[in-house]
Computed example of a mutant assay.
Amino acid sequence: MRSVPVRRTVTALVSALALAGTAASPAAAAPRTIELVNLGDSYSAAFGTGGLQQVEDLPGCAQGTGRDHVDKLEAHPRVEVTLDAACAGATTKDVRHLVSVPFVGDALAEADVVTLTMGGNDIGWGGFIQACSAPAEAQYGQGPCEAMLAQAPSLIAGAAASAAETVTAIDAVADARIVVLGYPRLFDDRQDTPMLSAERAAQLNDWTDELNAALAAAVEEEGAVFVDVTDRFRGHGVGSADPWILFGPGAGDHNLHPTERGYLSGYFPGLLGQVARAR
């Protein structure tokens, strides 16, 4: 059975963030280790933090090589990441299929916590951003963007319903706390940029909010926990003075993914609290 890939070198988590809770007497038994399985899409696979590497035993499954929220948990003495099978480009259906892979199912059966992001690839935000970009609207007008935006409600509803099915599939094999993390708003919508007008940035951010709300309702109905990260990323979108979302001509596949700072300051605090509750 495949163990968690050694993706990135990490530093130890400071003791103030210990998951063991309040101090125990010397005679008390040591707190048990929490076993964690990480699944999901590129926002769970450290895209945006560095280079790319393939996950052992999962053909076509790529992860970033820098530090993210999963790495920081892995550094904790009371957390063991027994499997990291997040894959860039994964849809909710892809994650659901992964549950049936034998070594993934084995890891899930022993897990205390399962964490993942999912739903964004069901929507295909890249197409929205391309159609609604300032250069595209200058060349083709507003029609293609408006047509894409009109599809958003049905796409979001479908993604949320599929996410609920995926949670059900995970829950069928795992007696674990299932933590679904949401997506940040990608853009600073306070002013026009060469990429997007402020109006289009606000519309795309609003649809991200709608996706998060739909995912939260769907997965919580199936017993999972949803962690909203939008407040932690507020003021750090593309176009802001301090962006935590990567965007630039040299970023390639990492474009529009969190930077290392985004994962560690945006995603990690919310995930830490949920893992602590599973001890």
Results as ranks from 00 to 15, higher is better:
Gln203Pro: 10
Asp175Asn: 05
Ala174Tyr: 01
Thr193Glu: 02
Leu204Ile: 11
Leu181Ala: 09
Asp192Met: 00
Asp188Phe: 02
Ala174Gln: 00
Val180Lys: 05
Arg177Lys: 01
Leu196Cys: 08
Leu186Ser: 00
Asp209Thr: 15
Asp189Trp: 07
Ile178Asp: 02
Asp192Leu: 05
Leu211Cys: 13
Pro194Asn: 10
Gln191Val: 10
Ala198Met: 09
Asp209Tyr: 13
Glu199Cys: 13
Ala174Ser: 03
Glu210Pro: 11
Trp207Cys: 11
Glu210Thr: 15
Asp206Lys: 13
Thr193Gly: 02
Val179His: 02
Ala176Tyr: 02
Trp207Lys: 13
Arg190Leu: 08
Thr208Cys: 13
Glu199Gln: 14
Arg200Met: 12
Gln203Ile: 13
Leu204Lys: 11
Gly182Cys: 02
Gln191Leu: 10
Ala198Gln: 08
Glu199Arg: 11
Asp209Ile: 14
Asp206Val: 14
Leu181Arg: 06
Gln203Gly: 09
Trp207Gln: 15
Arg185Met: 04
Trp207Gly: 10
Arg190Cys: 05
Glu210Leu: 14
Asp175Ile: 06
Asp188Glu: 04
Asp209Trp: 11
Glu199Thr: 15
Pro194Leu: 08
Arg177Pro: 00
Asp175Leu: 06
Arg190Met: 09
Phe187Lys: 06
Phe187Gln: 00
Asp189Arg: 02
Arg185Tyr: 04
Asp209Met: 14
Ile178Trp: 05
Gly182Glu: 08
Thr208Ile: 15
Asp209Ala: 15
Phe187Pro: 05
Asp206Cys: 13
Ala174Cys: 01
Asp189Ala: 07
Gln203Met: 13
Pro184Thr: 00
Pro194Gly: 09
Gly182Leu: 04
Ile178Ser: 05
Leu196Gly: 06
Gly182Arg: 03
Glu210Asn: 15
Thr193Ile: 08
Met195Val: 12
Gln191Phe: 11
Leu211Pro: 10
Asn205Thr: 10
Glu199Asp: 15
Gly182Pro: 00
Asp206Asn: 15
Ala198Asn: 04
Trp207Ile: 14
Asp192Tyr: 01
Ser197Ile: 10
Tyr183Asn: 00
Thr208His: 11
Gln191His: 12
Phe187Leu: 06
Ala176Asn: 04
Ala174Val: 05
Gly182Gln: 00
Arg200His: 12
Asp192Ser: 03
Trp207Leu: 14
Ala198Leu: 09
Leu196Asp: 01
Thr193Leu: 05
Pro194Phe: 04
Thr193Asp: 01
Phe187Gly: 08
Ala201Gln: 09
Ala176Met: 00
Asp209Phe: 12
Met195Glu: 08
Tyr183Thr: 07
Asp188Ala: 04
Val179Gln: 04
Val180Met: 00
Ala176Ile: 06
Arg190Glu: 12
Val179Met: 03
Met195Ile: 12
Val179Ala: 02
Ala174Leu: 03
Leu196Ile: 09
Met195Phe: 13
Asp192Val: 09
Val179Thr: 01
Leu211Tyr: 11
Asp188Leu: 03
Glu210Arg: 15
Leu181Asp: 07
Asp206Leu: 15
Arg200Gly: 08
Asp189Lys: 05
Arg190Tyr: 08
Asp209Ser: 15
Val179Trp: 05
Trp207Thr: 15
Pro194Ile: 10
Leu186Ile: 04
Ala201Ser: 10
Asp206Ile: 12
Tyr183Gln: 00
Asp192Arg: 02
Asp209Val: 14
Leu181Lys: 03
Thr208Glu: 14
Arg185Asn: 05
Leu204Asn: 00
Leu186Gly: 07
Ala176Pro: 02
Gln203Val: 13
Arg190Val: 09
Leu196Ala: 04
Thr208Gln: 14
Glu199Phe: 14
Asn205Cys: 10
